[in-house]
Nucleic acid binder design. Structure first.
Length: 594
RNA sequence: GGGGCGGUAGCUCAAUUGGUUAGAGCUCCGGACUGUCUAUCCGGAGGUUGCGAGUUCGAAUCUCGUCCGCCUCGCCA
């Protein structure tokens, strides 16, 4: 077997004259008369031109070369020389070529249904790429993503390893937990009718590791949530999971911040600077979202001071709702820039996210025009000042409950940012969002819901509010946000069993239920639990940011489609009746005909 | 579970109001060419229009069902 001495991206003009061996795939094949064949040989490092010429090779070798086709896997032995025909500036190895002296065909390829060319990739439908993933992954850009992902995990292990974090594996077959996403469940053969669940995250185990004296824990771990995938979401995904003992939130944010700084420096050569902080309250009020994209401004303007005074029924109705908000987006020069069609699109978006409609108006020299101008005109001076609006601006309004109004206005702001080209693609805007409330009200269920998760601690001093005003209680949670994407989230945890029990109670988990589901954590908390906290970040989304894709399937070697299928392996699929019998499982799905 | 877009040659797409033998580029196959490099030129092959019904003299086109892909709402502590 021909064993390589170099990769296909290595050779330069300084290597001319050397005898080398390369292995790889035939990227392109160019025949120039019966006696001259050029091949571009590809491996994950690059392309090298191989030449077979009757003038300096025997006819048998040229015949072998003439029989090669795209994606054949071969090894080539020969001499490096400067190119006769002049260098190819498009290739890093373009100064040289490899004059073949021996070619070994490792394996021929059938005619490939898709080709691993980057400039063709966006033309190939994604289902073909997923079906023939082994060919698609040969593309240089896919190889680059795999490399970046590997680089990230290496930096994770190096950075946190140096900080004394211990890598510990937690189980995949665990007990099903009641809150959060739908669990994937696995039947137990040894206990008929009993089930394991796959972890949605190793949350409880990592806390128990703190109680176990591990001090600092790290795991790069698969998590499973049986919910519908999205462009940035898969049912199975990877978290980098961290936990630390004897810390407050500053310690966790420090170490995570220094990691992010190092990552962006080493992978992109970018200095992200100091990471600013914003309270959850400010993020929601000013940006309508808990992970604001700070690459552009266009803040929401609060209209609560005057919205109820102008006799506009939409605003009056909104102000009568519980926890009402009336917010505006003022688009500088928008009266000219935004077309009727765009306003219709914005209106449709607003309705999609629950708004009744989208009140609009234009600011003119003497007041307001179009839309809801007639309601605003009598109060023109006051309203214009409150909005900080100038002639030629377009103003969009949202009026509803806090949740709906901010959701709608936050989405409108993002769409406007994109559509108006306000987003600087080269910018990296990080921030810490802090001071989350502990709970939000779940009106349907008539109880409190944890904003983060039920193990999140209140900020020191906030504990009394668990009794007096749970809705006002601030948590010790924190999210790291970059360019409008939440890349990490965590909190200081509850290490006091009494507080944990109180939180469960507020969440509507009575003592028995809590004991049934989390009893082992509640027990463990009674045996000397250290103060601890941690953070987890989504590796997939982090790599998406670093490589600049908005498709999570691009950063996963073997991803699933939006309906949970693996088009290459055809999972999921049926199993034998005997397998089910052994597991004491019967399917109630309608029989499929083959 | 809801909404939108799509499925035609190996790949990417076209096909007038429902009307002759469903076309093009790339790929592939054969040929020419000794300095190509997204090679070029000449020729050829390649189709159950996702699948199943229905309407019609006639369906890629219209209707119904179904499967698949993408985007999205819900969902995702």
């Amino acid at each position: 077997m021909i064993k390589r001495t170099h990769s296909c991206g290595d050779l330069r003009d300084s290597d001319a004259g050397a005898s080398v061996r390369l292995c790889g795939w035939v990227n392109t094949y160019r025949e120039q008369g019966k006696g001259l064949v050029f091949l571009d040989l590809r491996d994950r490092a690059g392309l090298t031109q191989v030449v077979c010429d009757l003038e300096d090779s025997d006819s048998e070798l040229v015949e072998i070369a003439r029989g090669l086709r795209r994606e054949d896997c071969i090894g080539v032995e020969g001499k490096v020389r400067l190119r006769d025909g002049g260098a190819n500036d498009k290739l890093e190895t373009g100064a040289i070529e490899l004059v073949a002296e021996r070619i070994q065909v490792f394996s021929k390829s059938k005619t490939p249904p898709i080709l691993p060319d980057d400039h063709e990739a966006d033309k190939i439908s994604e289902d073909k790429r997923l079906e023939y993933r082994y060919i698609d992954l040969r593309r240089p850009s896919m190889q680059k993503i795999l490399r970046t992902r590997s680089q990230v995990t290496r930096i994770v292990r190096d950075h946190f390893g140096n900080e004394g974090f211990l890598e510990v594996e937690t189980p995949f077959l665990i007990k099903s937990s009641p809150e959060g996403a739908r669990d994937f469940i696995v039947p137990s053969r040894q206990y008929p009718g009993q089930w394991y669940a796959l972890p949605q995250s190793p949350q409880i185990f990592k806390q128990i590791l703190m109680i176990s004296g591990c001090d600092r824990y790290l795991q790069i771990v698969r998590c499973f949530r049986d919910e519908d995938p999205r462009a940035d979401r898969q049912a199975e995904f990877t978290q980098v999971d961290l936990e630390m003992s004897f810390v407050d939130r500053e310690d966790v944010m420090d170490i995570m911040g220094s990691f992010a700084t190092r990552l962006w420096d080493e992978i992109l050569g970018v200095d992200i600077g100091d990471i600013p902080r914003m309270s959850w309250h400010d993020a929601m009020e000013d940006y309508g979202i808990d992970r604001p994209d700070l690459r552009f401004d266009l803040k929401l303007v609060d209209c609560g001071d005057w919205a109820g005074d102008i006799g506009f029924r939409v605003f009056d109705d909104a102000m009568a709702k519980p926890n009402p908000r009336v917010k505006a987006i003022v688009i500088p020069g928008g009266a000219e820039k935004i077309t009727r069609k765009q306003i219709d699109e914005l209106d449709a978006l607003a309705k999609q996210f629950g708004a009744g409609g989208l009140p609009v108006t234009k600011v003119t020299a003497d007041g307001f025009a179009t839309g809801i101008a007639k309601f605003l005109a009598p109060h023109a001076d006051r309203v214009r000042e409150a909005l900080g609006a100038k002639d030629g601006d377009l103003v969009l309004f949202g009026a509803d409950t806090f949740d709906t109004c901010l959701k709608v206005m936050g989405e409108l702001r993002l769409k406007l940012g994109r559509d108006l080209g306000l987003i600087d693609d080269a910018a990296w805007k990080f921030l810490w969002v802090v001071d989350f409330p502990m709970f939000e009200r779940d009106e349907d269920a008539g109880r409190w819901k944890a904003i983060h998760h039920p193990f999140t601690s209140p900020m020191p001093g906030e504990e009394p509010k668990l009794e007096s005003a749970p809705g006002d209680c601030i948590s010790a949670g924190y999210d790291l946000v970059c360019n409008g994407s939440e890349i990490a989230g965590g909190s200081v945890r509850i290490h006091d069993q009494a507080i944990q029990a109180k939180v469960f109670e507020l969440l509507g988990l009575d003592g028995d239920t809590a004991k049934l589901k989390f009893g082992f954590l509640l027990d463990a908390l009674q045996y000397g639990a250290p103060p601890h906290g941690g953070i987890a970040f989504g590796l997939d989304r982090l790599v998406m940011l670093l490589v600049g894709t908005n498709n999570i399937r691009d950063v996963i070697a073997f991803p699933k489609t939006q309906t949970g299928q693996d088009l290459m392996s055809n999972a999921p699929g049926p199993v034998d009746a005997e397998q089910l019998e052994e597991l004491f499982v019967a399917s109630t799905a309608p029989e499929e005909e083959d």
